[in-house]
Amino acid sequence: MKRLSGFLLFAALCAALPILFPDNYYVTVVGLTVFINIILAVSLNLLMGYAGQISLGHAAFFGLGAYSSAILTIRYGLNPWLAMLAGAAMVMALSYILSRPILRLKGHYLAMATLGLGIIVHIFFVQADELTGGPDGISGLPVLSIMGLPIDSDIRWYWVLCSFMLLTVLFSLNIADSRAGRALSAVHGSEIAAQMMGIDTAKVKSHIFVFSALIASVAGSLFAHQQDFVSPESFSFFFSIELVTMVVLGGLGSTFGAVIGAFILSILPEVLIVFEDFEVLIFGAILMVIMIFLPEGLFVALKNRVIHFMRRSQGGA
């Protein structure tokens, strides 16, 4: 079980927190945001970190999931789980159709196309007000329940989101260490060599795009129920950028890097609140400084230093 020791430690930590600090604001309230962000960052890392395909529009799929749940449950009275499923199916279909033309693009062109996708979807949320409630959004989603148990308190949401987050992290770790994951890394490393090894690069890219969109969509549905409210603001271009930042901040290509990045970027605004007007300024500065001095990302830089240090001390002994 050495392969999963890091994961088990992380899972234990997540499980211990609400038991040790049952009514702590940071655990049961901020914790939920952290979990959603981790799910999104880890899913985005599958595409960006593993397969090397930048996406500046990940929030679109998150938003489509959230709005599907809100619209289908409130306007059409659908069962929340069915609504979540329908949203996921719709996002899968959409992302599949878009994946081929979008992922044919590279570098800045790919960045532009995914950015465009995110902005178009966001404008749709704002403008299609008969369906989406426009800028005010929609509130009053039905309570989600699991086998008759209603998920209606922060602590229950903690367990639900924590479970889905851990599942996502586990999936991501499993993929990294598999034929599928190596195919993704190969596409990242050299697309031509990957093709010569028999990898259908277009298909591999398309599949991971759909998979990561699917996770984002389910996260969106859960988010909508947890917040009991959806509005376009949560799914803007800025949020997509924030997700990319989480992934890069922690370290591209590392699952736990994405986890750490998501954690830091979710906590940072809470901490920076004390600086009031300086919040935005400091946030921007931190981002720049980390990227300039640790371009490989915080987690990866730290991990490399630890490995380096251990090698050296072993060599010296």
């Binding site: 950028i241 990319v244 890069v248 921007g284 500065a285 981002l287 371009p295």
Partner: peptide, 28 residues
């Protein structure tokens, strides 16, 4: 200049950081 070996994605994040920083400064 200090980040001259950064990858495309890192430079994108740096300039995004700069844009947030400048916006923050303008807000102040």
């Amino acid at each position: 200049e200090p980040a001259k070996n950064a990858t495309v994605v890192s430079t994108i994040i740096i300039t995004i950081g700069a844009s947030i920083f400048l916006r923050g400064a303008a807000l102040l």
